[in-house]
Design a protein around this nucleic acid. Structure first.
Length: 590
RNA sequence: GGCCCGGUAGCUCAGUUGAAUAGAGCAACUGCCUUCUAAGCAGUAGGUCAUUGGUUUGAAUCCAAUCCGGGUCACCA
C-alpha cells in the first residue's frame, strides 16, 4: 500500500480512538511536506477543528504524539506548525521500500485481473497522410493502453480506418481527372502522400470551378453544390455504395497505396493494433441499425427521404443519420461499429481517442446508442484531446498548414544525430547502433513533447522552439538513464544489509519512487499519460541532484555504496518503466 | 446567437479532492567539468493566477457575472 494511503488509514484510526468519533481518510488532507519544513508527509488539521473542538496545534500535538507512540516503526518524529502536522517517516520504512523493490523491473505495475477495456485510437482517413495532430492521437492512444495494462486491465487496441465516404471519393475523382495513370511507384512517392496530393488537388479544382460559377452570378453556397467536380464526387459515392465494379476497383487500388504508406509510419512510431476495423465493413451494419431504429420510432424520416433523430429534448439538435440519397453519414458507421465491437470483444469500457472537435459528435453517438438500447452504450467513453496548433493557428490539410508526421519525425531524428555528433560521446558505436540511437532520441523527444501536456488541453507546436533536448524533455530523462547505466556497468549491487541513516537527497529519491504505483493508478483512472511524463521527469531531476552531490562508487563506506547502487538500479528501473508506458525507449548509452 | 473548453512568469506548461512564501522548463544572468556522461548541477531575476463580486478559518482551485481566445451547432469526416 502506498504511504499516503497508509497515513490516511492510520491517522483516521488514531483520530477515532483519540476522540471517540468515527473518522475516515477523507476527513483530512495528506500532502507531501514542503521542503522548507521538517518532515515527509503533512496532515492538514483545519478540517478537524470543528469536530474535535480543539485548536489545530493542540490537535496536531496530541495526534502526533499518539501516532509516534502507537507506530514507532513507521514514524520517527513530528512537529506542528500553524495547523499542519508534519510527520517524519522512519528510515526503516524507506529502506524497506528500497530493499523490497530495487531489483524488480515490474515495480509499480498491477498484475492482470481488473477487467477488460478497449482503446480505439489513430482512426485515420485514407485520403491523406498523417500529420502532427495524428501523432498526438497515436501516442496518446498507445500510451493510455499501456498505462491501463500496467494498472492490471486487459486491453484491446483497435483502429477504425475511415476508408469510405465523400472525402475518399474526392481523392479518387481528382486522380481520375489529373493523374494520367501515375502511381506512387511511378512517381517515387510514399503512397499516403501520393493520394493526399490528389485530395489537395480536388480542393484546388473545386475552388476554381466555384469561382467561375460565382463570377457567373451564382451564390457561393449553391456554387459549391453545383460545381461539376463536386457532383462527380457525390455520384461516385452513390456508385461506390451500389458496388459499381470500376469504382470499387479504383477505391481498392488507392486505399492500398495509402495503407502501405501508413504501415511505414506506424512501424516507425510503434503504433500497433489488435484489430483494425474498416468503415467500409461497418457502415452497412450501421444502415441496418438505422432501419431498426426507424421501425422502433427512435428515428424519423423527412419528406425527402432523409432519416433523422430528434435530440432537442436532450438539449441538442436534430441529427441526420442517413442521407436523402440513401447513403450513410459519418455517424451511421459509428453506430454499427459500436455493435460490432461488442459482439467481438465485449469490454467493460470502450474508449475512443478522438479530438475534442468531435465532442458533440460523441455526445450524440452515445445518446443514439442508448436510445437504440444497444449493449455497452453506457460504457462508451470519449477520450477527448486538444488540437495541436501552430504559431499561425490550427493545422488544415486543405490549406497546406500542416506539420507532416513523416517530416517531423525525420527532423527530430536529424536533430538527434547532429546533437549527438556534436557531443561526440558515442564514437565507438557501429552505424547500426547509431541509427537506432538517433531514432530512440529523436522519437523520444517528439513523443515526450506531445505527451507531457494534459491531453484535454490544446497545445502549441512552434517548430523553431519546440525541438529541444534540454530540461523538461524526453532526452533529459533518457540521458539520466544512460548515466545511471554507466555507473551500473562498473558495478552492480551486491549482497548487503543496509541500515544506514538516509541523507536528504537519498531519501528524496525514495520518496519519489515510492509514489510510482500510485502514479500509474492515477494515470489509468484519468486516462492521462501526462501524469506519467511529469513523474518520470521529476524522478530524473531528483536523481541528478542526488548524483552530483553524492558519489556512488566512491561512497564514504561500503554500506553507503551498496545503498546508492540500489538507488541507482531502482531509479533506472522506474525511469525505464515509466518511459515504456509513454512508448519511449531509453538507451544504455548516449 | 445556443452549447462545450480554455485564460497561471516574456514563451511553453505543472499546480487531483480548497491550505504554509503559486512551481518547472525555455529564453536572460552568475557559478561548477584532471575523480561514476556538463543532453547535467547549484543559484539570481522574472507573477495583480484575465477582471469583479461571493462562499470559507483559508481560494489559482468552488459559485456568479463580465471580458478575451478556441471549438462546435454540415445531407464533411
Amino acid at each position: 500500500m502506498a504511504i499516503a494511503d497508509i497515513l490516511r488509514k492510520t491517522v483516521a484510526a488514531s483520530l477515532t480512538s483519540l476522540y471517540g468519533q468515527d473518522f475516515t481518510g477523507s476527513d483530512f488532507q495528506v500532502n507531501q511536506t514542503k521542503p522548507e519544513f521538517e518532515g515527509d508527509y503533512t496532515i492538514v488539521l483545519f478540517s478537524l477543528v470543528k469536530r474535535i473542538k480543539k485548536s489545530p496545534d493542540q490537535c496536531g500535538n496530541e495526534l502526533g504524539a499518539y501516532l509516534l507512540q502507537q507506530h514507532p516503526d513507521l514514524f520517527s518524529g513530528f512537529n506542528t506548525i500553524k495547523g499542519f502536522l508534519n510527520l517524519s517517516i522512519s528510515n526503516g520504512f524507506w529502506l524497506d521500500v528500497l530493499t523490497q523493490n530495487f531489483a524488480d523491473a515490474s515495480f509499480g505495475r498491477t498484475p492482470a485481473g481488473k477487467g477488460k477495456v478497449m482503446v480505439e485510437y489513430s482512426s485515420p482517413n485514407t485520403n491523406k497522410p498523417l500529420h502532427l495532430g495524428h501523432l498526438r492521437n497515436n501516442f496518446l492512444g498507445w500510451s493510455t493502453a499501456a498505462i491501463l495494462e500496467a494498472d492490471g486491465q486487459q486491453v484491446v487496441k483497435t483502429c477504425i480506418a475511415n476508408d469510405r465516404g465523400i472525402h475518399i471519393c474526392k481523392s479518387m475523382i481528382a486522380w481520375q481527372l489529373f493523374a494520367n495513370g501515375a502511381t506512387p511507384a511511378s512517381t517515387g512517392t510514399k503512397g499516403d502522400h501520393f493520394v493526399g496530393d490528389y485530395y489537395v488537388l480536388f480542393g484546388t479544382e473545386l475552388k476554381k470551378q466555384v469561382d467561375e460559377l460565382v463570377a457567373g452570378g451564382m451564390d457561393k453556397e449553391e456554387a459549391e453544390k453545383q460545381a461539376p467536380i463536386m457532383q462527380q464526387a457525390q455520384q461516385m459515392l452513390v456508385d461506390w455504395e451500389a458496388g459499381k465494379p470500376e469504382v470499387i476497383a479504383l477505391w481498392k487500388k488507392m486505399n492500398s497505396w495509402v495503407y502501405e504508406g501508413f504501415e511505414t509510419t506506424y512501424k516507425r512510431i510503434g503504433s500497433d493494433f489488435d484489430k483494425t476495423y474498416y468503415e467500409s465493413e461497418t457502415y452497412l451494419l450501421g444502415k441496418d441499425l438505422v432501419e431498426t431504429g426507424l421501425a422502433k420510432g427512435v428515428f424519423f424520416q423527412k419528406e425527402d427521404g432523409s432519416v433523422w433523430i430528434d435530440l432537442t429534448a436532450e438539449g441538442l439538435d436534430q441529427k441526420i443519420v442517413r442521407r436523402r440519397d440513401g447513403t450513410a453519414v459519418y455517424i451511421t458507421q459509428d453506430i454499427g461499429l459500436a455493435v460490432r465491437k461488442h459482439e467481438e470483444f465485449g469490454c467493460d469500457k470502450s474508449i475512443y481517442v478522438v479530438g475534442n472537435e468531435q465532442d458533440y459528435h460523441f455526445k450524440v453517438l452515445k445518446l443514439i446508442c442508448q436510445k437504440l438500447h444497444l449493449p455497452d452504450a453506457d460504457n462508451i467513453y470519449h477520450l477527448s484531446y486538444g488540437m495541436v496548433e501552430l504559431p499561425g493557428g490550427r493545422m488544415k490539410t486543405r490549406e497546406g498548414t500542416v506539420v507532416d508526421a513523416d517530416d517531423i519525425i525525420d527532423e527530430m531524428v536529424k536533430v538527434a544525430r547532429e546533437k549527438t555528433e556534436e557531443l561526440g560521446k558515442v564514437k565507438d558505436f557501429t552505424p547500426a547502433e547509431l541509427t537506432e540511437l538517433y531514432d530512440i532520441i529523436g522519437l523520444g523527444a517528439l513523443k515526450f513533447f506531445l505527451l507531457r501536456v494534459d491531453p484535454k488541453k490544446k497545445m502549441l507546436f512552434n517548430p523553431e522552439e519546440s525541438i529541444d533536448f534540454h530540461g523538461f524533455t524526453g532526452p533529459f530523462i533518457q540521458y539520466t538513464h544512460a548515466r545511471i547505466k554507466s555507473i551500473l556497468r562498473r558495478e552492480m549491487p551486491g549482497p548487503a544489509n543496509i541500515s544506514t541513516p538516509l541523507l536528504p537527497l537519498e531519501k528524496d529519491l525514495l520518496v519519489a519512487m515510492e509514489q510510482y504505483p500510485s502514479v500509474i493508478e492515477q494515470a489509468a483512472a484519468s486516462f492521462d499519460p501526462s501524469l506519467v511524463a511529469n513523474y518520470a521527469y521529476s524522478v530524473a531531476k531528483t536523481f541528478n541532484s542526488f548524483v552530483t552531490e553524492h558519489k556512488v562508487l566512491a561512497a564514504e563506506t561500503e554500506e553507503k555504496k551498496q545503498l546508492r547502487l540500489r538507488l541507482c538500479q531502482m531509479t533506472a528501473n522506474v525511469i525505464a518503466s515509466a518511459m515504456q508506458l509513454l512508448g519511449i525507449r531509453v538507451p544504455e548509452r548516449m
